[in-house]
């Protein structure tokens, strides 16, 4: 069965499938294919230092430095060797939100002295302020720089190992356990939902903007919740059977080498350097974009 890639012409038929399958595919974390610097890095130090760098990258104030951060993240992505496709999907997920800034900001940013303003049409009610574009570009560049860093951060070690590292970093144990359980059941429920959905389609359900759709979607979600609630009981009992006492026993051990620390220190210093650069505007084109 072909899902989701039909063209606009057969819209009415493929619409329902398309809308639901706009559900991003749940990406599993693959690893072990390559052993790069990021794969070998101690996850605890990796998470801490990349998170710090992300906060630095998210707080710069000029487009030039933000683009520099983007370049740093992109090169990290290249070193980590994770697929570009997945990074591109992350950017696509933010695209609508960021596009809103590009459309709205030039029209609504208050005019400050020194701004370039273009007036459209005869009336003066539509004004395009070019400073809006640079503010939007700044926001987009910052968002991109953090989003690109997420792939090297998460896809270079298995998800459970990342979560265990988080626990070692001081994230409360219950939260980490819940994350692990969720990471398992999200896939189960997505499968369950797609089964329900196929059944609905077979029975002739086509979504549209009407009462019927709302009613059926309500039944659909209600069914999902009722089934999951019943499943919670079974899952919990199964966990008790296997001797769950409130924590998962883990054999995960973390070892850090001086190289790990050096790498971490490098990223933190990089973050500080970016902030300093931003502060003193020493980049060649930071003035242009200001």
């Amino acid at each position: 069965m072909k899902l989701g890639k039909t063209s606009e012409t057969s819209r009415s038929r493929s619409r329902g499938e398309q809308e639901l399958w706009a559900v991003p595919e749940l990406p599993g974390v693959e690893e072990g294919r390559r052993q790069t610097l990021f794969h070998r890095w101690d996850p605890r130090i990796k998470i801490a230092s990349l998170l710090l760098f992300s906060f630095c990258a998210a707080s710069v104030g000029t487009v030039g430095t933000a683009l520099l951060c983007c370049a740093v993240s992109a090169s990290a992505l290249m070193v980590a060797g994770t697929p570009w496709r997945l990074a591109a999907r992350r950017i696509a997920a933010m695209a609508a939100f960021l596009a809103m800034f590009f459309v709205v900001l030039p029209l609504t940013v208050p005019v400050l002295p020194g701004d370039q303003v273009a007036t459209l049409g005869h009336g003066t009610w539509i004004q395009i302020n070019f400073r809006g574009f640079s503010v939007a570009a700044l926001v987009a560049a910052k968002a991109m720089s953090v989003a690109l860093l997420m792939e090297p951060l998460l896809r270079t070690s298995p998800f459970p190992r990342t979560v265990n590292a988080l626990a070692r970093l001081g994230v409360p144990d219950p939260l980490c356990q819940m994350l692990l359980i969720m990471y398992r059941y999200v896939f189960v429920f997505r499968h369950e939902m797609s089964r329900l959905w196929v059944g609905m389609n077979v029975r002739g359900f086509r979504p549209g903007t009407n009462r019927r759709t709302i009613h059926i979607l309500g039944n659909f979600l209600g069914m999902l919740f009722v089934r999951s609630l019943e499943r919670t009981e079974r899952v919990h009992e199964a966990m008790l059977c296997r001797g769950f006492t409130g924590r998962f026993p883990t054999r995960e051990s973390f070892r850090s080498t001086p190289l790990d620390w050096a790498l971490g220190a490098g990223w933190v210093l990089g973050g500080v350097a970016v902030l300093l650069l931003d502060r003193y505007e020493t980049l060649p084109f930071s003035g242009v974009f200001r």
Binding site: A22, V186, R190, M193, T213, R231
Partner: peptide, 19 residues
């Protein structure tokens, strides 16, 4: 653990798009 399982159900449900 039950909250976690229910949360995954909500997570999946929030991915449904209503036309």
């Amino acid at each position: 653990p039950k909250v976690a399982v229910m949360t995954s159900a909500f997570f999946v449900a929030s991915l449904v798009h209503v036309p």
